[in-house]
Design a binder for these strands. Structure first.
Lengths: 346, 346
DNA sequence: CGCTAGCACTCTGGGGCAAAGAGTGCTAAA
DNA sequence: TTTAGCACTCTTTGCCCCAGAGTGCTAGCG
């Protein structure tokens, strides 16, 4: 792979990509020769550019328009050419001072993080809330409403509070509800939610449940409380930032993009996938697997508490984004959020 | 006011506005004469149009481009010309079947309502969650986290669950926390939140609080739990719908609009204001008081529970929107939501 | 006296066209 | 192997012109 491109060709490719990142315009041989003087004439650079185009790193929008990086070009740039800049102390401070857990709910903090990712990167910020499945049972509470409806409140160790309204066939007395929640809080606290689910399911199979009225009620109730969509939520902030990018100057592209943002499900999938891997991940163009966001890239990282990865965050921008600036921002923000959730909530 | 326009002139104004609503184009005298035959020649209609322009109901984008309604024009149309269509049984059914309280949390329902407002109207849906201040205390719960931090969960009668993380100077034992929440639940249940606040404040002034250690702790804790932003939240859905409207074909307008959507605070103000009045309200163009959404109108209504108004919802679209279709949608949706919250949760 | 037909006038939008600019690929020479 | 030169291509821009749409005004009609 490294043999595919000579040292010189790599330098030129890098120059072209960086020039394009800076200007958003197709870059021509003359410009490269002038801005990145390496003792080569435009003609030589043209030859190299032709080679790079044949190899699939560049393409020309039309005959006389200079070259633009392809996805493969960006991928190569990111993998082997890019030098990630470190954040200065000052920038770190600026980032860390934006967030505060105290006096807020976790969702608000996550939204703030997303907002700050967007405003610092000048692209669009993305934060996926911890998925219930991955966190640990902390507390459950049942509040009776009218007409046999019950409000369930489920709290996880990461400080997330979920609630939903469920319906029981037969009305339960406040006293029963209290007994039930006491029982559940006693036996379930500290278990990961997925184990909680298993446990309840297993319990329902056991013979005892058939004869113990209250136990039976408890189990149906908690099953209802846990089933269904306790999914992660995505906080997308700063969507309008991305509209300043020249590639979204035409209305059609813009519309596509916003439609894509409205389908949060796909984003959740992607972010969940990105959680698997360590550290910062970069998805370029079609690698995101998202429709309608051609020409966009996504930089993600995951955040975690003591027990492991619980969520993911990132920045979405044009493929022509300033990777070397955004990568450390995403990286540092993820660490910061991990730290905050780890120290304070568990 | 009614004397300002003759019967005929009103008919013509109505024709022009309806034509413009349908086509999004400036409308000329010939078109009016053809599409709304009333035995008048284009020339006559031209005279009338010139009058209407002088009076400020119409304006021409340029000399040879037909007329377009002004804000005053729309206002007059909405106030005196508009015939609001009733929803058919079928449409009502379609609307009411979209929502379901069971198995969801209130926030999700509100988001669904917003989404459905947008998808049925084909504009953008807006729902403001009940403001804490306006609802009634139902339950409070304190869960200790590490390092003297406490997660407070506050439930209101309307089924809203709020939570935040607060910090106590001195650590409190779980036992104390339990006592505290028991006390609060006993004494506060059924009081409107604003009365709760007053009550706590009054209590703090009383002499007793100085000597009763636990009471003092209780009061500081609950004050912290209640203070600050328990504001309404706005759910904006279907923003991309509005992009299909031809008036947003140029990128600059679009960008403005999205920036406006991101400043939810202004929208909250407006929706809160609209809560004061009865029934459906219409804000045309600058009447919204929002910047950056020139050429947009807002149709709102409020929803309530047994005790009174608790929130507002609406649709935002171009001033050229189909008022007669959207008004009943907003109206019916508000009733529906009121009904849902009233019957089921209180 | 109100309505209308006719007409001159105005403004926009689109098509066509040419020139300018940018950039390429190729060839031949250093 | 590099480079200078050159012919070629394609887009962009400006310009002009014309068609189309619509207006305002005037004069005549019922």
């Amino acid at each position: 792979m490294t043999t595919e491109l000579s040292e010189r060709n790599r330098t030129i490719l890098e120059a072209i990509i960086e020039e394009h990142i800076a200007t958003a315009e197709p870059v021509g041989s003359r410009t490269v020769a002038r801005r990145h003087p390496m003792g080569l004439s435009p003609a030589t650079i043209r030859n190299v550019m032709a080679d790079l185009e044949d190899l699939g790193y560049l393409r020309s929008p039309h005959t006389s328009a200079g070259r633009v990086p392809t996805e493969k070009g960006y991928r190569f740039y990111v993998d082997t050419l890019l030098q990630v800049r470190q954040l200065t102390q000052k920038e770190q401070k600026q980032l860390s001072s934006s967030y505060q857990l105290r006096g807020h709910k976790v969702e608000e903090v996550l939204r703030d993080v997303s907002r700050s990712l967007s405003s610092i990167s000048r692209y669009t910020g993305l934060v996926m809330a911890p998925r219930m499945e991955t966190t640990v049972f902390r507390h459950i509470e049942f509040l009776p409403l009218s007409q046999g409806r019950i409000l369930v409140i489920l709290v996880t160790r990461s400080g997330l509070v979920q609630n939903k309204i469920i319906e029981t066939g037969e009305p339960l007395t406040p006293r029963e509800l209290e007994q039930i929640s006491n029982y559940l809080n006693r036996t379930l606290t500290g278990l990961p939610i997925h184990e909680v689910k298993e446990k309840i399911f297993a319990e329902m199979q056991r013979e005892k449940a058939r004869y113990d009225q209250l136990l039976a009620k408890t189990l149906t109730l908690s099953r209802q409380a846990l089933q269904g969509n306790l999914d992660g939520e995505v906080f997308i902030e700063g969507t309008s930032n991305i509209l300043d990018q020249p590639e979204f100057a035409n209305v059609e592209t813009m519309r596509e993009l916003f439609r894509a943002f409205e389908q949060k499900g796909r984003l959740i999938d992607l972010l969940t996938r990105s959680q698997q891997a360590e550290g910062v991940q970069i998805f370029i163009g079609s690698e995101t697997g998202l429709e309608g966001i051609d020409g966009c890239s996504l930089i993600t990282s995951h955040y975690s508490n003591r027990r492991g990865t619980i969520g993911a965050l990132g920045v979405i921008g044009p493929s022509r984004m300033n990777y070397s600036a955004v990568i450390p921002i995403v990286d540092y923000t993820a660490r910061l959020l991990s730290q905050m959730l780890e120290g304070d909530i568990e």
